[in-house]
Each structure stands twice: as C-alpha cells, then as structure tokens.
Nucleic acid binder design. Structure first.
Lengths: 158, 158
DNA sequence: GGGAAAGAGGACTAAAATGGTCCTATATGG
DNA sequence: CCATATAGGACCATTTTAGTCCTCTTTCCC
C-alpha cells in the first residue's frame, strides 16, 4: 500500500503533539494520555525518536522529552527515517548492489528517480507543517502528465 | 521504509518486460525466464495484474498476456494499486472513518495532502517511462523548502 | 475428439515483520 | 533515600509476505 507503518504514524502524531508546546518537556505518560495510545507503545516510540536524534531526553524527576531542533527544521523524512529506516521504494534503492536482478530488471534507474522525488517531497514537509492545521501546499501539481507520447511500437528495436 | 513490497517490484519489472514488446503475447514461463524469477511467483503476479485490468489474458495454447492499454496509459500508481491496494501513507487516508484517533491526532489533514502529492507523482510516471532507460524528469525540484518560518513559540496559544 | 499448452482460482505454508508488553537498570531532583 | 523519569532490551502474539502447489477451464491443433 506504500504506506507508513502504524508506529510511524504514531511517531508523527507524538512529534506533532510535542511541537505544539515545544518550550516544555513532555513525559511519556503525559503524551500517552494526550494522544490516546498505550503508554508502553508511546514510550517505545519516544526512545526511538530520541535515539535518532529528533528528541532530547532528560531522565529523573521533572524529566521528559524535548525537540532537539525547531519544528521547521524537522522534516517528515526525518521522522519516517527514524522509525522505518531509509526511505526508498525498492530494496535496491538504498542497499548496495546485493540485488542480483539489477542487470535484468531494467527498471531500477527510474524507480530510484521516483524514490528520490518522494524523498524530496517529504523533505519539504516539516513538523511545523504537520503540527498545524493549515493546509500545506506541495510542489506537485495535479494534471501534469508531461509524458512524451512515443508510438506504441517504439519499443520494438532490439 | 515506505517501500514497495517485493512483489510489487516484481510486478513492475514484469510489466516493463511486456511493455518492451507490447505487440506480442507473453506466457508466464517465458517471462519467468526473462526476468529470472520463479515461475509460480511470476504466474501469480500476472494473474493479479490481469484481474486488475492492466493485462489481458488469453488461455489455451498460444495464449499469454498482453497489456490492456498502451504503456503510456499505464501508470506506476496503477501497478502499485493492482498489487498492494490503494495508495495512501496512513490507514485513515483511505479507510472511511474507522480511526477513533482522528479527532485527537491533529495530523491527518496534512498527512493526507502528502499522500495525495505522492499519488500525483506516481500518476505522472508511466510504464513507458519505467520500461525505458532514459532518465525521467519528475515535477519535484530539490531545494524548495518553501517553509514559512514561524517563531518557535507560535504554537503556544491554547 | 483428444491431447498439449496455456491461464484461473484457490488452498496452503514457512518465514519475517509488526505491534505491543514487560522487566531491570540508571539517572535526577527534592 | 525515595519517587519519578528514561534506557535498553527481551519477549510474544498476530499479521503480512512470499512462495508453492493442486485442480479446473479454455483454446488450439492434429
């Protein structure tokens, strides 16, 4: 479905919640309540986000989590990558050369360009965007379809 | 990883293979050889693609599969949707209202816009693009980052 | 008509990823 | 020193994924 895992979705929700009050620290249980998700799950997510450097944590009483950067400097890519690892549509779009089909598949190059475009798109979306309700404008307009129209037989020569 | 399943990847490879000789019918075993994938798997994919209307099939000897439309009229979206179902980053970007967090998550709207942008992007990529090796140009340019820079405290009022 | 060559449609299974819980250790503040 | 937090894993159930296999139907050709 080309979709995010639930956990990544949770992560986004949690991050947005923190971003809305980015001047104070938030504990796992506080966030769990706000977001209506079970504490252990929220806690796990927070740890991951902290480990990836998107959040900073302080232990002990009065501890909690804070954004490590301003919401405008944290992108959707960052959040997704923190939970799911590198963004890429196909295995071969990031792993190095362990796809033995590479030669025969004939599709890798352009798939990777598509991957790159999606990454670019997600780089443009910041946590500040996600946390607010104003609609964001994205740099892809709908009816582009800017396709060269080769004759159907153009693929024949080989 | 926001990635396609292997099978979807296979589907793209198979479709591209067919597109390169779109004037003749291709059998499952022929394609399996060409693409270096096991026959049962290829066969399964072809059935799915046919069932989704991207391929037309003819049974019996001299049977096989043909594209149901020209490669320029088949998009990456079509192929992905055929194997994985509707494209959407989050559950709530297509299921109707069965997410009880919708009210509290506060992120849904903009996630859906991002989803939509990705769909748009994938609508622009045709099978003709994938099947050829020329680099495609996609309507997302890199250093946009056209973000309004609100003060970090702009989120405080509530 | 009969047989071979193909696809249609599922049932089934092994392996891996996902989502979620829980426990122990460590740090911090009062 | 105790209460409150996070850190870091171990662990488990469930679902999804990838892959195989079997039986049935259609079509062509001799």
């Amino acid at each position: 479905m080309l979709k995010l895992s639930k956990l990544t979705d949770y992560a986004a929700v949690i991050m947005a919640q923190i971003a809305r009050q980015s001047d104070q620290a938030h504990t796992a249980s506080e966030l769990a309540q706000r977001v209506h998700l079970p504490l252990p799950t929220v806690s796990k997510m927070l740890k991951k986000l902290a480990k990836s450097g998107l959040l900073e944590s302080r232990r002990g009483s009065h501890g909690g989590y804070v954004l490590s950067r301003s919401p405008v400097e944290i992108t959707a890519s960052d959040i997704i990558a923190a939970i799911e690892g590198p963004i890429g549509m196909t295995e071969c779009s990031h792993a190095d050369g362990d796809c033995e089909l590479l030669n025969t598949c004939g599709v890798a190059d352009n798939w990777q360009r598509v991957s790159q475009a999606i990454r670019t798109l997600l780089d443009c979306v910041t946590l500040a965007h996600l946390a607010q309700s104003n609609p964001i404008k994205l740099p892809v307009q709908l009816p582009i379809q800017s396709v060269t129209l080769p004759t159907t037989a153009a693929s024949r020569e080989h």
